[in-house]
Design a protein around this nucleic acid. Structure first.
Lengths: 175, 175
DNA sequence: GTTTCCATGTAATCTGTTACATGATTCT
DNA sequence: AGAATCATGTAACAGATTACATGGAAAC
């Protein structure tokens, strides 16, 4: 049920069309809550039906501009304050780790090297994003920076973990 | 498509019934790839149809014992070695961070304190699991330990991040 | 004998992805 | 004139959750 809240949240920055919101979902929000066009248009329809947003302008090319209603804002605040966030559980990356004994040690090490490389790469891409946005907006986007920092720390953690895990495997190899 | 591989992976430890596997999905695998009864029984049916597992014994109470086939093992290895794992993107916990400007600073700080507490609690529960299993199996379960370590590091990272984020907000408050 | 555990299955619903379909406007 | 971009929508399907339904076997 979070896509609806993501949409409501984006509309707090001002009225926007489905198409506008989609750019954000494919941009800054892609790392946190990706959404497809299909899904977003459907959700905006439901949101309008529920009275959490309203169509405030119909422009060229059938463009509909949605605006957050008081009910919508209330729902968003409720979600922010009262609904317990859930830790994301599913990770096919970790699931594979459980079954690495099925393949041989060399392949398992290769897998972990891959996770290390992946972490480094993703970390670098987040760092690049950070350097693009940081200078312009000093504390307007505090919360954006805080979210980004989570990603930087996650990827750094994964890199360190992958290195550590490779060392653990090296120990097993010796014994 | 990972539930099927989780099931295949568990069957490498030996034949088991849907019910048996379900215990594992609700136990050690719950943190990595939870699955419901409904879904698992359905998947086992499909897996049998596809020839990746076979029913090797029908016991009391309609119990069916599934065994991994050579095709099943091959598919599992293929998934382990050739299919790129995906980083889990969606996090409603981080999505909320993007919209914390909607609520006031005190509430935002409260949110971050909550994340800190959550991380501490989850970390402790993982630590407890670690201490339960570690003594028995020294290196039989290397990969289990490696997966668990990821969780320990993740939760520690989140705790530190939450503390840091609260400090960032304190700076904003002053200014 | 009744509660608990073993054991499997179906149906309804929700969320999300991919693909298909359409058309207006702007830019070159 | 043709390409790129703006803009919205539908359909089919896959994956996951919740609830419903059933019944055998063991334990107390």
């Amino acid at each position: 049920m979070s896509l609806r809240h993501a949409a409501l949240g984006l509309l707090t920055f001002g009225p926007a069309s489905g198409y506008d919101l989609l750019q954000t979902f494919h941009g800054s929000l892609a790392n946190v809550w990706p959404a497809t066009q299909s899904q977003l248009y459907g959700e905006l329809g439901k949101l309008a039906e529920a009275g959490l947003v309203t169509v405030t302008e119909e422009g060229a090319r059938r463009r509909k501009e949605y605006t957050l209603t008081a009910d919508g804002l209330a729902e968003l605040k409720h979600w922010l304050v009262d609904v317990e966030p859930s830790m994301p559980r599913r990770s096919d990356m970790l699931l594979r780790v459980f079954f690495l004994n099925v393949i041989d040690l060399a392949q398992a090490e290769e897998y972990l090297r891959g996770r290390e490389a992946e972490a480094i790469e993703y970390h670098a891409s987040l760092r690049a994003t950070q350097e693009q946005i940081a200078p312009e907006t000093m504390d307007l986007a505090v919360y954006g920076r805080i979210a980004l920092e989570w990603g930087l720390r996650l990827t750094e953690m994964q890199r360190e973990w992958a290195v550590w895990a490779q060392e653990e495997l090296a120990k097993v190899k010796k014994a």
